[in-house]
Computed example of a mutant assay.
Amino acid sequence: MQHCCKFSAVIHKEGDWYVSWCPELDIASQGKDVEEAICNLKEAVELYLEDEETTIVEVDSILTTTFEVVYDSHSHSVST
């Protein structure tokens, strides 16, 4: 029997790659562009869900946002 579930994807760039992450299942993938990163994440989630022992916790919605933090740059190194 087929089921349909909606999941969230959080995407950020790391070097030359786009990393995509599904917070509901804690699964990540990557791609050379945003579309490929999402496609690869979808494939990874489909493979994960094929496991018969997988439990899916349905979440109505995920709120994502950004925020800024000001800190002393002398005490931490930041990579971009």
Rank of each mutant, 00 (worst) to 15 (best):
L47M: 15
P23I: 06
V59T: 15
V78K: 08
I27W: 07
T55D: 08
P23W: 03
T65G: 09
K6T: 15
S77V: 05
H74C: 03
H74F: 04
G15H: 07
L47D: 15
E52L: 13
D60I: 06
V70E: 14
T55V: 14
V19R: 06
V45S: 01
I11C: 12
V59A: 07
I27P: 03
L47V: 09
D72S: 10
L49Y: 09
I38V: 14
S75N: 04
C5D: 06
E14W: 01
S61K: 11
T80L: 02
S20I: 12
E52V: 14
D26A: 07
V34P: 01
K13L: 12
V34M: 10
T66G: 10
K42V: 08
I62R: 00
E53D: 15
T64M: 13
A28C: 12
F67N: 06
T55Q: 10
E36D: 10
V69Q: 05
E50G: 00
A37P: 05
E43N: 08
C5I: 00
N40A: 10
E58L: 13
N40W: 03
D26E: 13
S61R: 12
S20D: 02
T64E: 11
V70W: 00
D26F: 01
E46W: 02
S20L: 05
V69N: 04
V34Q: 09
S61F: 11
K13G: 08
C4K: 13
L47G: 11
T54D: 02
S29A: 12
E58Q: 12
E50L: 10
S73N: 07
D72V: 02
A44L: 03
Y71F: 15
L49K: 05
E53M: 04
H12G: 05
L47Q: 11
S61N: 12
A28T: 07
A9L: 06
E68S: 14
E43K: 06
D51N: 15
S61A: 11
Y18D: 01
E14G: 00
I56M: 03
F67K: 05
Y48M: 10
C5Y: 11
K13V: 10
V45W: 02
E68V: 11
E58M: 09
H12D: 13
K13I: 12
D72A: 08
H3T: 03
A9C: 13
E36K: 11
K32M: 07
F67Y: 14
Q2N: 09
